[in-house]
Amino acid sequence: MTMTAERVGVRLPRRPAIAEPRRRGRWHALLREPGTALGLILVVSLLLAGLVAPWSPLADPTEINLRERLRSPSPEHLLGTDHMGRDTFSRLVHGARATLLAAAATLVLSMTIAVTVGLLSGYYGGWPDTALMWVVDLLLAFPSLILALAVAGALGPGLLNVLLAVGAVWWVGHARIIRGITLGEREMAYVTAARASGASDRRIILRHIAPNILGPIVVLASLDIGWIILGIAGLSFLGLGAQPPTPEWGAMLSDARPHLQTAPHLILLPGAAIFLAVLGFNLLGDGLRDLLDPRIRRLAR
């Protein structure tokens, strides 16, 4: 575990870094695995699509043309148009942006909570630890999608509410893992030494322990993002997530339901987009996990 940070390329003070060439070799190994390479390609193209969408020459994804409804693919509309005459291809590409932004925001929110809770709980212990882990135990056993559904039901539909809802329930599993790692690190000789030399708690947490949880966080995040994308799309599909005219894959799938038989591609395309995004992140996550300490694999389970 103590090697984790080096392996993802974070330089730690006071501890000798592993030689450069070896690290590079590991990254090469990562890419030689065809699955991981595919995952990386999928994720990178998705990120690119999401990034450049607003500046691309694509049609406006919200531009309605009621005289051009449900058109088949043509040079003008590469993947045809939807029930409002909007360009399907443009909506898919912009959908990547909405989906990735929502997933990223959810991840940042839940990771922030998880790291804070995990670090403090693991480092200080005592009754706050007991209390926090109680809450974690409780929430962990809740199906997160259902809890998010209840929250979204209370706050009202909307992408922001959904990501708040998902983020608010997603952190618990990670908090437990980060706490576990913190507990382990706290007992390490170098932490004891730092403490003996008079370093403050704050300094020990930030300088010594925090860098060691970076690796696990990266792995957890990449393994999780697929689930989060599926969850957000699922809530949007149920009508609780993204609202019109926002192009979002789950909502697009839901909008296309009346045309299931007459224009099945309108369901298949966003379905495929969700599938490829989740697949990409899962493959990449697997690769990253294999690259890192196997102990994370056990903890992440």
Partner: peptide, 25 residues
């Protein structure tokens, strides 16, 4: 109702009226 709101939003934009859609309770 959501379809109507979306369609009207686009049509109003054509004549220069900015419209916001509010699908709610």
């Amino acid at each position: 109702l959501p379809i109507m709101a979306e369609a009207a939003q686009a049509m109003l934009a054509d004549v220069g009226i900015k419209a916001k859609v509010l699908i709610t309770e």
